[in-house]
Nucleic acid binder design. Structure first.
Length: 427
DNA sequence: CGGCGTTAG
DNA sequence: TATTCTAACGCCG
């Protein structure tokens, strides 16, 4: 069997790059994109990194720095990023049908069966084509396993001399050894801050140390996840590509409010809105759910004021994806845990016990007849279609509220460059 | 099977 | 003044 060849394509500062595609003036200027609610920094341009801004940090820490250097600040515009991501993936899949969309800004390409002469040259072609067709800059890292491709990507990030493309497949044992020794243990894929601390205590400080560590010891202390990482670092592929993403087993919508909320009606609006959203996602993957949880909490960072957090889980009598039914259950759950007088900061709804939509299974729905089930499904299909075509919330349920001024802050949103129909109609 | 801990992006 | 969100997986009781 031929050796594996895996390419990792990673979009550079993806959210920032998306904003830049449509606003040439942002190039070369320090630019950042914020999390939901404009709270934390989630993406930074290289210029912003040089100023000392850090991913994950709250914005307020940097107000001075931002003003002083004219840092360009944007709220997250997920519909824009999703659209740009789809365009990037469309370009990539033409290089190989064996594409795994790993995240919004990353993909793995299986090049094993393509017998390419010069992989680095191929990587440069990928980079050039994605840039030409989408305006998004990417890095391309090529290796015999996914984990080694991740290592290559770290090396590329740290050294501009690679020009955003690196192929490890041709490396000698000695070259690979030196490369692995340059990657700190916390930058190894799958090693988070806890494991990194633990491993450093035992003198395992680089990717090379982990590759060479005692295998039984790794298995014992880092579980099979660690054992797989180690095998992949040794060149044995054991994390297969998932070209078809399996349906989600859990679907959650949980958001902080733009301000503190105390009244029950407003919480009901929020919970209804989140329920409509998770139900929509559930239907989009052709599933039903058997369990719903609703939770709420006060601001955990608030020093004064009584903290309160609670959650309520409901096992549904029959699997469903019907928004009105899920909303009824969610509001009943909310009633069970709502307490007067608290300053709520966040609420959420989660669907679980998810099953694929059955083709025919007449007794599945208990009290709800099959005919009633199909009627509900058709109704929701129409609602989904209208919202897909005319934009989110073109059609929504009255319980979700009209004013909804508890919604998250997005004060610095860029215009909808790619989704013209947004926000046109409210019915 | 559910809760918890860890990780990723 | 101000502190993201979503999802998966392994282990353990």
């Amino acid at each position: 069997m031929r050796a594996h060849v895996i390419a990792l394509i990673d979009c550079t500062s993806f959210y920032v790059s998306c904003e830049r595609v449509f606003q040439a003036a942002l190039h070369n200027r320090p630019t950042i994109v914020l999390s939901n609610n404009d709270g934390c920094i989630v993406a930074l341009s290289s210029e912003a990194k040089k100023l000392g801004l850090k991913r994950g940090q709250p914005l307020f820490k940097y107000q001075q720095l931002i003003r002083k250097h004219g840092v360009q600040v944007y709220s997250s515009n997920y519909s824009l990023y999703q659209e740009m991501s789809a365009r990037v993936m469309d370009v990539l899949v033409r290089f190989s049908p064996r594409l795994e969309v790993y995240s919004i800004d990353e993909a793995f390409l299986d090049l094993s069966s393509l017998s390419i002469e010069d992989l680095a040259e191929f990587g440069r072609t990928i980079k050039a084509r994605v840039l030409q067709y989408t305006g998004i800059p990417v890095r391309v890292a090529i290796a015999p396993t996914r984990c080694l491709a991740k290592i290559a990507c770290e090396l590329v990030k740290d050294d501009p001399r690679y020009g955003d493309v690196l192929d490890l497949t041709g490396f000698t044992g000695q070259q690979l050894d030196e490369a692995l020794a340059r990657v700190p243990i916390e930058d190894v894929w799958g090693i988070g801050h806890k494991y990194a601390r633990f491993l450093r205590n035992y003198g395992i400080a680089t990717a090379r140390d982990l590759r060479n560590a005692d295998e039984r010891w790794i298995r014992r202390h880092l579980t099979v996840v660690g054992a797989r990482i180690q095998a992949e670092l040794q060149g044995t592929a054991c994390l297969p590509l998932e070209v078809k993403r399996p349906p989600k087993q859990q679907i959650v919508c949980a958001k902080s409010f733009g301000r503190e909320v105390t009244s029950r009606p407003e919480l009901e609006e929020a919970v209804s809105t989140y329920t409509a959203r998770v139900a929509e996602k559930l239907r989009a993957q052709d599933s039903l759910c058997g369990r719903l949880s609703v939770f709420l909490r006060t601001n955990p960072f608030e020093r004064d004021g009584e903290p309160y957090a609670n959650e309520f889980t409901i096992d549904l009598l029959h699997p469903t994806s019907f928004t009105p039914e899920l909303t009824r259950q969610a509001l009943a759950g909310l009633r069970a845990i709502y307490r007067e007088g608290y300053h709520y900061k966040k609420a959420g709804v989660a669907l679980s016990h998810i099953t694929p939509l059955p083709v025919v299974q007449p007794d599945l729905f208990g009290e709800v007849t099959l005919g009633e089930h199909y009627r509900q499904a058709r109704l929701m299909a129409i609602v989904d279609a209208i919202n897909r075509i005319f934009g989110r919330d073109t059609l929504y349920f009255a319980v979700q509220g009209i004013a909804r001024d508890w919604r998250m802050r997005q004060a610095m949103l860029s215009p909808p460059f790619t989704t013209r129909w947004d926000d046109i109609l409210t019915i």
